[in-house]
Structure formats: C-alpha cells, structure tokens
Amino acid sequence: MGSGAKRRFLTVLAAANLAAGIANAACVPDVVEVRGDWGKARFTVDIADDPQERARGLMHVPEMAQSRGMLFLYDAPHHATFWMKNTLIPLDMIFIGEDGVVTHVHENAIPHDETVIDGGEGVVAVLEINGGLSSRFGIEPGDALRHPGIDQNLAAWPCE
C-alpha cells in the first residue's frame, strides 16, 4: 500500500472510530442526553446514586458550567421531593419516569429555599441543571432522557 493510500485508510479508520465513539458517548455514565421537539441537549453529569450522595447533591457548589449537571438515580420508582437548603445556585430539576420520559420540570429553584419541591410519583431519576436552561432549551414533560441508568427494556430512548 502506497503512503497516500495508507494515509487515506488511516483517515477513514480514524473517522470511523470517532463516529463510533460519538455514538457510544451518549450511553456512558457521565453523559445524559435529553431530546424533544425542540432538538437535543447533552450534559456531562456527576451521579448521585446512594443516600449520602443524593442528600449532598449540589449543596455548597458555587458555580456550574452550562454543560454540566447532576443525575440522581434511584433503584425503584418513588415519590421524589427536593429542597434547596445549602444550595448556592438556582437549579432546574427535571424529573424522569422509569421509561426515561420527563414527567415534571421545576424551573429556577431558589438557592437556600427550604420549601419542598414535589416531583411527583414514579420518579427513577432527577436531572439537575443550571436554572433557566430547561426553558432555554424547551425541555418539558414528554421529552425523553437517554442514560445507561434508565432500564433499557423500558426506555423510550434506549442506548444504542
């Protein structure tokens, strides 16, 4: 194989590997995608999947990049409630059912507010992002979230 053909082969191989990596990136633990009629949004997330991590959440975090968030994962559907005690930044809370479908969005939760935010029944995950982003994107009930923490047998938007 000549050097030009070899270079083209390596370029095609690199492009294929990059494309495969991008396709699989949607289903890694630290990435969440949300889609709706408005398009798609992608967030790099920290996972809170045990009682201590969920209790701490984003407390005491002074700022968060627009592309970041926290994903709370639960073992079974339950009635989810949150509050903002010791939370320094406004947050949007996106409540997710067992099929990965958004069931409720609470926008711009107020820092330090101890008022209970009720996400409703049947919640298996909650995505917290910077306050105002859900409105900016158009995220609303009925949109779908893709993440490996959602039961792939039930997922409206499964990992590929």
Rank of each mutant, 00 (worst) to 15 (best):
D118M: 04
P90V: 07
I139Q: 04
M70N: 03
L154C: 03
G21S: 09
D30M: 07
V101M: 12
K85M: 01
N130H: 10
F72C: 03
A20H: 11
Q52C: 00
K40H: 13
M93L: 15
R136N: 14
M93V: 07
W157E: 11
L145Q: 09
A65D: 15
E63V: 10
D113M: 03
G120D: 06
W38R: 09
R56Y: 05
A144Q: 15
H104I: 03
A23L: 14
K40P: 00
L13C: 10
L154M: 12
A109Q: 00
R7Y: 13
V124K: 04
V105E: 07
W157I: 04
L71E: 10
Q52T: 09
I89N: 01
G39T: 05
M59T: 05
L145H: 08
Q66K: 12
P148A: 07
D99M: 04
R42E: 11
V126K: 08
H79C: 06
A155C: 01
L10C: 12
A55H: 10
P141T: 03
L13I: 04
V45G: 08
V61W: 01
V105R: 13
N17W: 15
L18M: 14
G138F: 07
A5R: 15
L91F: 02
M64K: 07
V105F: 13
M70I: 07
E121T: 13
A5C: 12
A15L: 15
K40I: 13
D46I: 04
I89L: 06
R68G: 00
A55E: 14
P141G: 06
A156F: 02
A65W: 10
T11H: 07
A109L: 00
F9E: 12
N24C: 13
P158C: 02
D49G: 03
P62N: 06
G39A: 02
P158G: 09
A48I: 00
E98N: 08
V31E: 09
G97N: 14
I139M: 12
D99W: 03
N108K: 11
V32W: 03
W83R: 00
A41K: 08
I139P: 04
I47S: 02
N108W: 05
C27G: 08
A125K: 06
A55D: 12
A19W: 08
S67T: 13
R56S: 04
D113P: 02
A14Q: 09
E128K: 12
I110N: 06
F137Q: 11
A109T: 02
L58M: 06
R35E: 15
L71T: 10
P62T: 05
G131F: 02
E33M: 09
K6L: 14
G149Y: 11
A55C: 01
V105K: 10
G132L: 02
A16E: 04
E53H: 08
I47L: 12
N153P: 00
V116L: 09
G142H: 06
L91H: 01
G36Y: 04
I150N: 02
A155N: 06
